[in-house]
Amino acid sequence: MAITIKDVAKLSNVAPSTVSRVIANNPRISEKTKIKVRAAMDELGYHPNFIARSLANQSTRVIGLVLPNSTDVFFQNPFFPTVLRGLSDGANERHYALQINTGNTDEEIYDGVVQMVQGGRVDGVILLYSRIEDKVLNYLRERKFPFVVIGKPFKDVDQITYVDNDNYKATKEATRYLLSLGHKQIGFIGGDLNFVVTVERLLGFEKALREAGLQSNDDYIIHSQFLREGGQEAIGKLINLKEPPTALVVADDLIALGVLNTLLEMNISVPEDMSIISFNNVLFTELSHPPLTSVEINIFEIGYQASKSMIQLLENPNEPVKRIIVDHEIIKRLSCSESVKNISVL
Results as ranks from 00 to 15, higher is better:
residue 264 L to S: 13
residue 40 A to K: 06
residue 234 A to I: 08
residue 329 E to K: 15
residue 266 M to A: 09
residue 203 L to E: 15
residue 306 A to D: 04
residue 303 G to E: 02
residue 297 I to A: 09
residue 60 T to R: 11
residue 125 V to Y: 01
residue 44 L to T: 03
residue 217 N to A: 08
residue 326 V to C: 08
residue 232 Q to H: 12
residue 120 G to L: 11
residue 168 Y to N: 10
residue 123 D to W: 06
residue 83 V to H: 02
residue 266 M to I: 05
residue 227 L to W: 03
residue 145 F to E: 00
residue 59 S to E: 14
residue 149 V to R: 01
residue 90 G to W: 08
residue 33 T to Y: 10
residue 96 Y to C: 08
residue 183 H to I: 08
residue 164 D to F: 10
residue 246 T to N: 06
residue 168 Y to M: 12
residue 25 N to L: 08
residue 166 D to R: 01
residue 152 K to L: 10
residue 18 T to P: 04
residue 222 I to A: 04
residue 127 L to M: 14
residue 127 L to P: 02
residue 132 I to D: 09
residue 103 G to Q: 02
residue 175 T to D: 00
residue 186 I to M: 10
residue 284 F to C: 05
residue 251 A to G: 14
residue 178 L to Q: 01
residue 250 V to K: 00
residue 331 I to V: 15
residue 334 L to E: 15
residue 199 V to Q: 13
residue 186 I to N: 02
residue 80 F to Y: 15
residue 115 Q to E: 13
residue 82 T to Q: 15
residue 322 K to I: 04
residue 90 G to C: 04
residue 259 V to A: 04
residue 2 A to F: 12
residue 236 G to F: 05
residue 169 K to S: 08
residue 118 Q to T: 04
residue 282 V to P: 00
residue 37 V to Y: 04
residue 130 S to W: 05
residue 100 I to L: 15
residue 282 V to T: 15
residue 343 I to M: 13
residue 25 N to K: 14
residue 137 L to I: 12
residue 195 F to H: 04
residue 188 F to E: 07
residue 293 T to R: 05
residue 69 N to Y: 13
residue 16 P to A: 07
residue 293 T to W: 11
residue 68 P to D: 11
residue 1 M to V: 12
residue 311 I to P: 02
residue 322 K to T: 10
residue 8 V to F: 09
residue 339 S to V: 10
residue 223 H to Y: 14
residue 342 N to L: 13
residue 4 T to K: 09
residue 264 L to R: 14
residue 96 Y to Q: 08
residue 294 S to T: 08
residue 225 Q to H: 11
residue 24 A to K: 14
residue 340 V to P: 00
residue 35 I to A: 15
residue 329 E to N: 13
residue 100 I to V: 15
residue 284 F to S: 09
residue 51 I to A: 14
residue 25 N to Y: 11
residue 132 I to M: 12
residue 111 D to S: 12
residue 23 I to T: 02
residue 16 P to C: 05
residue 314 L to M: 02
residue 40 A to V: 01
residue 346 L to P: 14
residue 83 V to Q: 03
residue 7 D to Y: 08
residue 335 S to P: 03
residue 135 K to C: 02
residue 230 G to D: 06
residue 326 V to P: 01
residue 254 L to R: 00
residue 84 L to H: 03
residue 159 Q to L: 13
residue 196 V to G: 08
residue 227 L to V: 09
residue 49 N to K: 06
residue 314 L to Q: 10
residue 255 I to M: 10
residue 197 V to R: 06
residue 263 L to Y: 05
residue 137 L to H: 06
residue 235 I to D: 03
residue 332 K to W: 03
residue 37 V to A: 08
residue 270 V to M: 01
residue 164 D to L: 07
residue 295 V to H: 07
residue 249 V to E: 04
residue 106 D to E: 15
residue 231 G to Q: 07
residue 105 T to V: 01
residue 207 K to I: 04
residue 171 T to G: 01
residue 336 C to F: 07
residue 109 I to P: 00
residue 162 Y to L: 04
residue 46 Y to H: 09
residue 302 I to D: 01
residue 137 L to Y: 01
residue 296 E to F: 10
residue 26 N to E: 09
residue 162 Y to G: 01
residue 250 V to N: 05
residue 68 P to M: 11
residue 298 N to C: 03
residue 226 F to K: 00
residue 35 I to M: 13
residue 281 N to A: 11
residue 18 T to I: 12
residue 342 N to H: 14
residue 135 K to H: 12
residue 143 R to G: 03
residue 14 V to G: 07
residue 131 R to N: 00
residue 208 A to T: 00
residue 184 K to N: 14
residue 24 A to I: 00
